[in-house]
Write a protein that binds this DNA or RNA. Sequence first.
DNA 1: GTAAACTCTATACCTAGTATAGAGTCAACA
DNA 2: TGTTGACTCTATACTAGGTATAGAGTTTAC
Lengths: 129, 129
Amino acid sequence: MKIGELSKKSGCSIQTVRFYEKQHLFKACNRTEGNYRIYDASSLSTLRFIKQCRSLGLTIIEIKQLLDTKMNPDRSCTSVNNLIHQHMTDVTKRIEELNELKQTLTDMALACSDNRKVKECGVLQMLEK
Amino acid sequence: MKIGELSKKSGCSIQTVRFYEKQHLFKACNRTEGNYRIYDASSLSTLRFIKQCRSLGLTIIEIKQLLDTKMNPDRSCTSVNNLIHQHMTDVTKRIEELNELKQTLTDMALACSDNRKVKECGVLQMLEK
DNA sequence: GTAAACTCTATACCTAGTATAGAGTCAACA
DNA sequence: TGTTGACTCTATACTAGGTATAGAGTTTAC
Ligand SMILES: [Zn+2]
Ligand SMILES: [Zn+2]
Ligand SMILES: [Zn+2]
Ligand SMILES: [Zn+2]
């Protein structure tokens, strides 16, 4: 299968597939005589794995580590579990930050009403502080 | 005051101050004979305003709009209020996304325990799907 | 006079892609 | 056989909001 088909089946854009290859997330695949990339089913499943990881917010480096880990099926999976755990911590922290931010924005919105002039704007006054 | 002092008083790094100037967020200031930037108290308050906006997640372009708006004290502040309201919507949406993500990560963490091998890892198995 | 501290510009780098330009490849159709 | 259209190739620039240098010049203190 050529890159266009892989792109459609995986849901990653063609450029993204090439970008992943450049980042060594994807090993370089075979080429046709005309220099076209040729993929097989395993490329597709790797790409889907990568996509799933990205949707969780894992970085390319972290995904690389996961892919490396998968190469050694008999080792301990502790590093995988730790990685997910660490991410949960990060996401939780980010949610807390955003909740605080939301509260600030709410207070700010309440500090002004429509039909005011800029010099009386409650939002701008809060931003000055 | 020179850029180092402004940096310390505002909490923005020296590079960031120069970066803001380059982005026209900050108008170019006066220079000494030796070509050093010289700031006054109003520069500091503008910079603090910018920092406050950035901490709310406003983009540089949006901050530029706010600073422009502040130049016309007698106009309506509706655009300011709208901007904050739009941000609240965005932040709320982002929080929801992250909460879903957190749930997924939680399920994933529960799918595996320590002392398993990579080939039995519940996390990796979930990522395959 | 000189050393330390400060500042200057310009440039490269970061993440995770996206969007071109310009060239080459391949299949189908007339 | 020629040509059109769809596809692919590489290389490069761009995004946002900075951060981190290199190499040079300036100022201040001793
Ligand atoms: Zn992570
Ligand atoms: Zn207002
Ligand atoms: Zn916004
Ligand atoms: Zn596991």
